[in-house]
Design a binder for these strands. Structure first.
Lengths: 224, 224
DNA sequence: ACCTGAACACCGTTCAAGT
DNA sequence: ACCTGAACACCGTTCAAGT
């Protein structure tokens, strides 16, 4: 009986599967950041060799895309009451917050566009909100691209692992800007450096919503 | 004499310097993309060992930032005639085009904010253009951040080394969207997929300019 | 101060061989 | 079909030793 229990206590080698691989990858991502989600590290976690993973995943890029797709399923559903602008802002903020929880993920989200069910769901919700605001159809389609791009990039910028050095250098450069060679920077130095991330993001989203609402797309739109 | 010539034909080892290192890095970037700009590859090009480079450059991230700073100096100066909106659009498009010439650079530009002379010059020019459009000062400062972020991200998205797979998958998913579960996507599928990159970018910039012009920043802007 | 070789601790991906 | 070990061709960074 004891031996039967110990046989079952920890299944020594659960069979590999795409789902299991992605789940393990999310685990490493959460604990150690995307940079550590490597084929070798993942294989180690799954008690196998890196080569075995290639049965389920084409390459590292596809693995990262699968992770993103998975996590898109965890973002809170859009609120159903309130002004459409506020709800749009809240949905995109939830998306950005999710990306910020996983160091490094946002940067990969910028390149590896997902195409899974959860991504489509997000696009669907965004289109519905813009429709509610009576934004013309063509502007809705191009607009959500802009909104998602902005939300993703904002997360990517804040997801830098050690942003200290870069930012300090930039802040110093702006503060010390020569009044004669860079008069505008000198005059604006305060505003260039102020604003909490959340304030900036909220303003950015309102800028986009206003712009999308008021800017017509070109009449001839050739296919890509 | 022949021996003297051959001694001089190719200076076997020019002394290392930060400038020489960055110049060689730009060469590799241009030929082979940023991914190949590694300490080891660069050392090989300079006929030395990778360890020697650490005298002039703190790490790979700083090297990439230095490259970007350098290339910012090559973008065309802003045109001095025409509507301020058009000139703004042209300056930002020149910036994006420069990033697109160097595969991989845009992605690093998103994270490694430069702080060199050329970056400050670009910011100065952007501030001047928004001032010409009578955009209120606080909106100018926050606005250029949005504009640069958009121009950089747009380049990063198009700089993917093999975007084929991802994009095809997304296009298929959008076209095949189920009309009952994703009615908005089904209805908008044409507009979601059309538009040449240049058209989209131009529209995006106009959206931002319009939005920045019409959206006030919050009255209390706490420091970061 | 600058430069070097060697070492440490990693990578992605492929492939022949096994089951 | 799936899994494996080993190999190939790389990485960034540190450090003791030399000049």
């Amino acid at each position: 009986m004891a031996s039967e229990m110990s046989r079952r206590e920890r299944p020594a080698k659960p069979a590999l599967s795409r789902g299991g691989i992605v789940a393990a990858a999310v685990g490493i991502l959460r604990e150690e950041g995307l940079r550590k989600v490597t084929m070798r590290r993942l294989a180690q976690e799954l008690d196998t060799g890196a080569a075995s993973l290639y049965v389920y995943v084409r390459n590292t890029a596809e693995l990262h895309a699968a992770i993103l797709d998975e996590l898109l399923g965890t973002i809170a559903p859009p609120p159903s009451e309130g002004d459409w602008r506020d709800r749009l802002e809240r949905l995109l903020t939830a998306y950005t917050s999710m990306l910020l929880e996983y160091p490094g993920l946002a940067l990969s989200a910028l390149v590896a566009r997902p195409s899974g069910e959860n991504y489509l769901g997000l696009v669907e919700n965004l289109l519905a909100l813009l429709a509610e605001g009576d934004v013309p159809p063509e502007q809705r389609a191009w607009g959500i691209d802009l909104l998602l791009q902005y939300a993703t990039t904002t997360a990517a910028e804040h997801a830098d692992e050690e942003p200290q050095g870069d930012w300090d250098a930039l802040a110093r450069a702006v503060r010390d800007a020569d009044e004669t060679t860079h008069p505008r920077i000198a005059a604006h130095s305060a505003d260039l450096l102020t604003g909490q991330p959340a304030q900036r993001m909220s303003w950015g989203l309102r800028v986009l919503i206003t712009g999308i609402t008021h800017t017509a797309v070109p009449p001839e739109r050739n296919p890509t």
